[in-house]
């Protein structure tokens, strides 16, 4: 099992890169702090040190040991903030032009996906509506229009590193670009009632050829498949 699961969207690698930067910087401080802590615990145990010294912690030669790490943590924080905002901006603020747009509607306890169909336009006759099944074409930039019919849901595709809450009364736009074919999980990541545990859908990322075949197989008509599970 990989520590992080596979990357199937264009921005998944960016998010994982940020995670690694934080792991290195925060990990460094974690190990330094734990090392010093354990070193002191053993070195200054009563067995090794029968009597303690009187130290106020205001002596300049000692304060520097807290002061300099403090500055260094600040520098690390700035690095982390820089990369965090950069990744966030790419994923959540700066949307590339879409090739296609889909609608995603959460309701207790399924996802409804409206695909634009062969004409690549939403809101036309050949839209394909599916319950708990999302079909995407690889290497295509999608915008999604996310809605909820009842309570809060959260549209989550772990292999895309994508998560966005669906809020009743709002249409929230986001984007992704699948870069890898395969079948993956779609979750609802926000507690949404007793069926929250079964609110899972399947994502099929297909090659252009397979995707067209799928569009033909549903015959260009909106069709609702029976609910999975």
């Amino acid at each position: 099992m990989n520590f992080l699961i596979e990357q199937a969207s264009s921005f998944a690698a960016d998010i994982d890169g940020l995670i690694i930067i934080i792991a290195v910087l925060a990990g460094f401080w974690f190990f330094v702090a734990e090392f010093v802590l354990f070193y002191f615990i053993f070195k200054y145990s009563r067995k090794n040190q029968a009597q303690s010294e009187y130290i106020t912690g205001e002596e300049p030669e000692l304060v520097k040991w807290v002061h300099w790490p403090h500055i260094a943590v600040l520098v690390c924080d700035i690095v982390i903030i820089f990369f965090a905002v950069k990744v966030w901006y790419n994923v959540k603020q700066d949307f590339p032009q879409p090739d296609e747009t889909i609608r995603v509607v959460g309701y207790q306890w399924s996802w409804k996906f409206v695909h634009p169909g062969a004409d690549k336009q939403l809101g036309t006759e050949d839209d394909i509506e599916m319950i708990d099944e999302l079909h995407l074409k690889v290497n295509t930039t999608y915008h999604f229009k996310l809605e909820s019919e009842d309570v809060m849901h959260s549209f989550s595709i772990p292999v895309f590193r994508l998560k966005q809450d669906a809020v009743p009364g709002r249409v929230i736009t986001g984007w992704f670009k699948p870069i890898k074919t395969g079948q993956y999980d779609i979750q609802c990541a926000e507690m949404c009632g007793i069926g929250h545990g079964i609110m899972g859908s399947q994502l099929y990322v297909e090659s252009e050829e397979d995707h067209n075949k799928w569009i033909q197989s549903v015959n260009g008509q909106g069709e609702t498949l029976s609910q999975v599970q």
Partner: peptide, 20 residues
């Protein structure tokens, strides 16, 4: 994280030259 890290550093430093 800065005040919290500083607090942790100071606590660790409290052990310095103690008799635990």
């Amino acid at each position: 994280s800065i005040p919290i890290a500083e607090m942790c550093f100071v606590y660790i430093a409290t052990l310095y030259k103690g008799s635990i």
